[in-house]
Design a protein around this nucleic acid. Structure first.
Lengths: 349, 349
DNA sequence: CGCTGTCATGATAGCGCTACCATACGTTTT
DNA sequence: AAAACGTATGGTAGCGCTATCATGACAGCG
């Protein structure tokens, strides 16, 4: 069926489309008496147009209340000012603080954060990554070094900078974090130094919070090295004050001669500390308690909580800076950044 | 300058553009043996194509590893699956919990959250709104009913659903929140019922956290109504445990005969409670302490903190549901939703 | 058997912006 | 003086997708 007769009238009644009343750059350009492309340059590369052109464009923008369509701009230039941030949870303050650090630094550079929450589900992470790549994010930040196969492939091939935060290690691209195994060792050493011999590690959902289990690895290695047992109590509820109280109860039942408990984080530790006090136990004489993270709460308890301070906000800031550096084309010498940690001695051990 | 000579050779060497190796829908369509538009329909309106077409498109998507370009799709359809969420702070857990509620509901419906943080700066809010509108967000969620003039104008005219959360009142469009004045009254009544007569309200940065000052209004009205003074202590640091401790100290100095302190939130209250205990004060006998929010921490302290429980996550969920309902074209009967609050009696009053 | 009404599919024309080239003009170099 | 360069500006053609309209096929109806 060869069509030899062209459509008599090409329907050139301008196939009208939804007329999104939005003010466009062309309208601004017309009002300013320049071409659209000059208007575009006046806004995005101000140094590439004459002062007079720039001024009249800016005046027109103001007058018409022009709001740039970022969608169109990003599509045309195939780069967006979006940066995806994927975290496993928002309940855990730790991630929120990292996000804060990222946000304050990125927003100052004109980037927007696209936030995703995996709920500790790696398949969900993969889905989020797909979606975010669909938004042509300039970069992706994700918590942790563990991903599922598909996600890993997608990320390594997407061509955008990838920043893996929280834990130190060989990542796909950029990495900012701390050594959790070392942190576990550090606290275990401290407890042994203090003379404790019966030490239990308490964590919650370690398969999900695998960084906590890395800390346990370090802890275990030190204890074993000192010829001690390294019992582990794993709770099924997520880290919280409540879970900490339960952890304490479980330890007291299962290991009655425990002298010290090394909790996977400060929430658990604080919950246990408060519960212990409610029960009339003396800390650290009856039982010593240690945490991880260095949340402010620990410093306001009596006794103050012994913990390990992790520079969370700083981690976010540093990650953001490194990303910005990479995105602005500069070479990034160090792909891996150790933000370190610090033993914070309290009275609870 | 009439151009009568067309460009000799129209440079039709296909003005090649950056060839973003990305797999496009056209490629998928070709692989599936259908037209691009059918491929588009197969993905976005699966019920509008035949089963066979749909299957071959999906197979091609899988085979080529196609990731839809959401930018292009949104531009073409002038609607995005983005929803902007603007909060004044992430340090305050309260907002994070609202975000959680929003996120779990919105993500389930395929929406993405674009997060903005104003740092309690209304001009910053305006900037964020501008940016977000540039992304063609389908809707905007913002914390609070107070905005600056420009922001208000922009929001009311943007044509997208606006959801104002946290506080109840006459908003621009949709509203989910609670009555903070009533909450302040509620706690004040409780304290009076308990027999306290010298009651101080302690808040932090009330000009920023104006919801706390609304609670003070309610508090003050009740106290004045009972013929009592309603002194206010305002701290300059943001709400935190540390600030709470300082608030306590300030109250003890300025109003030595204070019997009860009504704190603007649980962080302050908990900080004060812990500090008081450290100083050997008995709560509530020496001094009673009340908070607001119903954070878990309060329930784990001894004595348990008397507070007002605000349904934060629920607020986020409800806001999300209402938005989705509106976005799916359904009529929204109630533009205003009161999520209420609940006096949570502890042992601290 | 024509008429109308679905249904599946496709051709076309944008969405609003910017990359890419081309042009015009003034300034410097040889 | 001619050539080479730099700067400000504009025309054109897309970025990848979808709204709109048009088409052809087939069913139901009098």
């Amino acid at each position: 069926m060869s069509k030899d007769t062209p459509p008599t009238v090409p329907t050139h009644t301008t196939k009208q489309r939804r007329s999104s009343d939005q003010v466009t750059l062309s309208q601004v350009a017309k009002a300013a008496g320049v071409s659209p492309i000059t208007a575009s340059r006046a806004l995005n590369h101000p140094d590439k147009v004459s002062d007079s052109a720039r001024d009249s464009v800016l005046a027109a923008v103001e007058k018409l209340g022009y709001v740039p369509n970022l969608l169109a701009g990003s599509l045309a230039s195939s780069r967006s000012q979006l940066i995806a941030v994927i975290v496993p949870s928002l309940i855990n303050t730790v991630f929120v603080e990292v996000i804060q650090g990222l946000q304050e630094t990125l927003e100052a550079e004109g980037y927007q954060i696209l936030l995703g929450n995996t709920d500790y589900d790696l398949d969900r992470e993969y889905q989020l990554v797909r979606t975010f790549l669909g938004w042509s994010c300039s970069a992706l930040v994700t918590a942790g070094l563990r991903h599922n196969k598909a996600c890993h492939t997608l990320l390594t091939n997407c061509g955008h900078p990838i920043m893996e935060v929280m834990e130190l290690g060989e990542g796909m691209d950029l990495n900012v974090g701390l050594d959790h195994v070392a942190a576990g060792r550090c606290m275990a050493n401290h407890l042994i130094d203090k003379g404790y011999r019966h030490i239990v590690y308490v964590g919650a959902r370690l398969s999900q919070d695998y960084r906590a289990s890395m800390r346990f690895e370090g802890h275990e290695a030190v204890l074993k090295g000192a010829g001690l047992d390294a019992p582990l109590v794993e709770l099924d509820t997520l880290g919280s004050l409540q879970a900490g109280a339960e952890g304490l109860a479980q330890v007291l039942t299962q290991y009655p001669d425990t002298q010290a408990i090394h909790f996977a984080n400060d929430d658990l530790a604080a919950g246990a500390l408060l519960a212990a006090q409610r029960q009339g136990l003396n800390i650290p004489n009856d039982i010593a308690i240690a945490g991880f993270n260095g949340l402010p709460l620990g410093q306001h308890l009596t006794p103050q909580l012994t913990t390990i301070l992790s520079p969370r906000k700083e981690m976010g800031r540093l990650a953001a800076k490194e990303l910005i550096r990479r995105l602005s084309g500069k070479n990034v010498y160090r792909r891996q950044h150790d933000v370190g940690f610090k033993l914070q001695l309290g009275e609870s051990t």
